[in-house]
């Protein structure tokens, strides 16, 4: 992990100006054409699958901000998926179905939780940081299990997707898919601005050499904490989307393996590259889907594949194409 973090990107180049324009354009074209394919081929499951992929990619993009650029290996990122999802579910259950309320609450609650987790965990480093973020996520998991009114261990079926008072109708699956895609691209753009700003250079400097950052006069803690909160808020949005897509929330949303999946998606795609997490998520979830159709033991194939990526492809998939580019 340390080596993978140390490797990283050259400098994060601007949005869409990465050397890998070809690969990125191909992935974007694929994502843009999914609804068309689903309609023509009469395969609505493709749309469902890719909606999930796009939402998880948004979560991976948020994790990449702190893990790839900030060097903070958070092993509890799924907690924000859960908090965002439960915000939507709980409010619906209490008769508050408006997205104008649900989504800001999902984002705000996640940001607040990130503030608490970050304020404590960012005082530690290495394995301790990983363990504390994991512990917090598991804590939320068990709290959700105890929420009997909201389904406890079994989860809660949400009767309606968030309403936006006629502005958009999320029950239209194609429209919902494109909304998720737009939010994903917006979040990639947001991260591209962030990481190249003064703030972004401050957190990247802290990843690179925190001792030196302090010596030249940066109070690094506060910048890392704010990036942690931004990442949490963004992932909370992904959680709200996920709850809307499945019309269902359960503690499983934030089980620790889900946090692991997110880390894998980021590392697979290319830590600290803008589109890496998107590419990684598409690859990982498609691979998982394809293998699960062939064998019960998809982990037996995915596991070693990841090992090879970790050993031989430190820059992830995005890094391979970057090197192959002339």
């Amino acid at each position: 992990m340390k080596a993978a973090l140390a490797f990283l990107h050259k400098q994060a180049p601007g949005f869409l100006f990465e050397p890998n324009t070809g690969l990125i354009a191909a992935v974007l074209a694929l994502l843009a054409l999914v609804p068309l394919y689903a309609a023509v081929a009469g395969d609505p499951f493709a749309l469902t699958l890719f909606t999930r992929i796009v939402i998880m990619a948004l979560a991976a993009v948020s994790l990449n901000l702190i893990m790839g650029y900030g060097g903070m290996v958070s092993f509890g990122h799924a907690a924000y998926l859960g908090i965002g999802g439960y915000a939507v579910g709980i409010l619906w259950k209490e008769g508050l179905g408006s997205g104008f309320l649900q989504w800001p609450v999902a984002i705000g609650a996640s940001a607040l939780f990130a503030l608490v987790v970050g304020a404590l965990s960012l005082r530690t480093r290495g394995v301790y940081f990983i363990m504390i973020t994991l512990a917090f996520a598991q804590m939320v998991y068990y709290v959700a299990q105890g929420l009997d009114r909201y389904g406890g261990d079994d989860g809660l079926t949400i009767g309606n997707r968030s309403t936006f008072h006629g502005l958009v109708n999320l029950n239209d699956n194609t429209l919902f898919y494109y909304l998720c895609l737009v939010l994903l691209l917006a979040s990639v753009y947001l991260v591209s601005r962030l990481v190249n700003s003064r703030f972004g250079l401050a957190i990247q400097g802290a990843r690179s050499n925190e001792r030196r950052m302090r010596a030249v006069g940066f109070p690094t803690f506060r910048y890392k904490l704010v990036s942690f909160v931004i990442a949490g808020a963004l992932c909370g949005l992904a959680g709200a989307l996920l709850a809307n897509q499945t019309n269902f929330i359960s503690p499983a949303l934030m089980f620790w393996t889900r946090s692991g999946d997110l880390m894998v998606m980021v590392i697979l795609g290319g830590l600290g590259s803008l589109f890496g997490p998107v590419i990684g998520t598409v690859t990982y979830l498609l691979l998982e889907e394809a293998l699960s159709r062939v064998t019960e033991y998809s982990g037996l194939i995915i596991g070693p594949a990841l090992l090879l990526v970790a050993i031989y492809l430190r820059g992830g998939i995005e890094g391979v194409f970057r090197k192959a580019a002339p």
């Binding site: 400098q11 601007g14 601005r193 962030l194 190249n196 700003s197 003064r198 703030f199 972004g200 250079l201 401050a202 400097g205 950052m213 030249v216 006069g217 940066f218 910048y223 704010v226």
Partner: peptide, 21 residues
Amino acid sequence: ALAVQAHAGHSFRFWKDARRD
């Protein structure tokens, strides 16, 4: 430039490209 930045006020500036500053 990072050393200069540390002494040029706070770094809660999220949008403009610092490498073009």
